[in-house]
């Protein structure tokens, strides 16, 4: 635990916060390309955030203070979560305070507040969005937890740091249970980030929207913070996926060139997987809302199977 570690953790948080809109932009570009549209510039999300920050905030008459607190809380939680995941180095000083279970709890704390804020104004859409968000989450959250459980039992630790170094210590090994967990994680990633089979981030079509319905009453800097937090969430899930399933490149040492290599690898992984996400979204169709529990139930059961398989095959 040195000052350098703390600085690196802080640096990672800032890196995450700055990088998140870029990832959104990158996925957006690929989606546009794949759909034969003209792509927006890569920095479009930054422009949007900049514009929103400068607009005036309009708050509904029936809103309580909860509505105004939530964006800050959401952004704070997401920023914190981003700093907890080993993106570049694994030896993060805060990693001991928050293990994966607490990480799931932290994400869910942010979500509960967002859902409550959506219900705060008392409009039809707000409560609809909150209800749907909770519907998605009550299956996605346990699925995520089970994915973590699988990896945790492989490495006998729930701390992200030891999960990653556990993989590194054993070298190359094919874990069948990870195949299941990986599929489940991908499904959860799509659902939790409001991606295509579950929700469409680019729609305001009332019948299908989930996330957008919750934040209809937000405007100005509050909206900017929420959108940013949302982008951060995508980045968080990506880096979680990298840490669990593609941990190569992550370093435990503090040498400059190793960190640089890890950073470059991380960016490379983001580039490839961001494009992959766009491809995945383009080739699949949005599901009916009541197919969503089925979809997420499948993810949950796959994750459960993963952990079963781990015990059954007796690694």
């Amino acid at each position: 635990m040195t000052l350098v570690n703390w600085l690196l953790q802080g640096g990672q948080e800032i890196l995450g916060i700055l990088l998140a809109p870029l990832l959104m932009g990158w996925v957006g570009i690929w989606r546009a390309w794949l759909q034969n549209r003209q792509a927006p510039p890569l920095i479009q999300p930054y422009r949007q955030l900049f514009k929103l920050f400068h607009k005036e905030v309009v708050i509904a008459e029936t809103a309580s203070p909860l509505l105004r607190v939530t964006p800050y809380l959401l952004f704070g939680c997401m920023g914190l979560t981003a700093s907890l995941i080993p993106m570049v180095i694994t030896d993060l000083p805060l990693a001991g305070a928050v293990d994966v279970i607490a990480l799931v709890g932290l994400l869910s704390l942010a979500r509960v507040f967002l859902a409550l804020a959506a219900m705060d104004v008392g409009t039809a859409f707000g409560s609809l969005g909150a209800r749907r968000e909770m519907l998605v989450s009550f299956l996605a959250e346990p699925a995520l937890l089970m994915v973590f459980f699988t990896v945790a039992s492989l490495n006998a630790s729930t701390s992200l740091r030891f999960m990653v170094t556990g993989f590194a210590a054993r070298g190359f090994y094919l874990y069948p249970s990870l195949a299941f967990a990986g599929v489940a994680f991908l499904m959860v990633l799509l659902a939790e980030n409001g991606r295509i089979p579950v929700d469409n981030p680019e729609t305001h079509l009332e019948l299908t929207m989930i996330h957008e319905a919750m934040i209809l009453e937000y405007s100005g800097r509050h909206l900017a913070l929420i959108e940013w937090a949302n982008a951060l969430k995508l980045l968080i899930y990506f880096s979680l996926g990298f840490a669990l399933f593609l941990p190569f490149g992550l370093t435990d040492s503090l040498q400059g060139w190793e960190i640089l290599r890890a950073l470059i690898l991380f960016l490379l992984k983001l580039t490839v997987m961001g494009a992959g996400l766009a491809v995945l979204e383009t080739i699949s169709a949005k599901q009916r809302l009541f197919r969503v529990p089925e979809y997420l139930g499948t993810a949950f059961l796959l994750a459960v199977l993963a952990i079963l398989l781990h015990y059954l095959l007796g690694s």
């Binding site: 920050f53 400068h54 309009v58 008459e61 800050y72 952004f75 704070g76 939680c77 104004v121």
Partner: peptide, 29 residues
């Protein structure tokens, strides 16, 4: 750290942007 993170967010937003806001009827699409 949650408190610090939220506090920093709040201060950051306050520091760089205006604090104007007003009340209006709910929008609801």
């Amino acid at each position: 750290v949650i408190m610090v993170s939220v506090g920093l967010t709040f201060l950051g937003v306050r520091r760089f942007f205006h604090g104007r806001w007003r009340r209006a009827p709910a929008w609801d699409c």
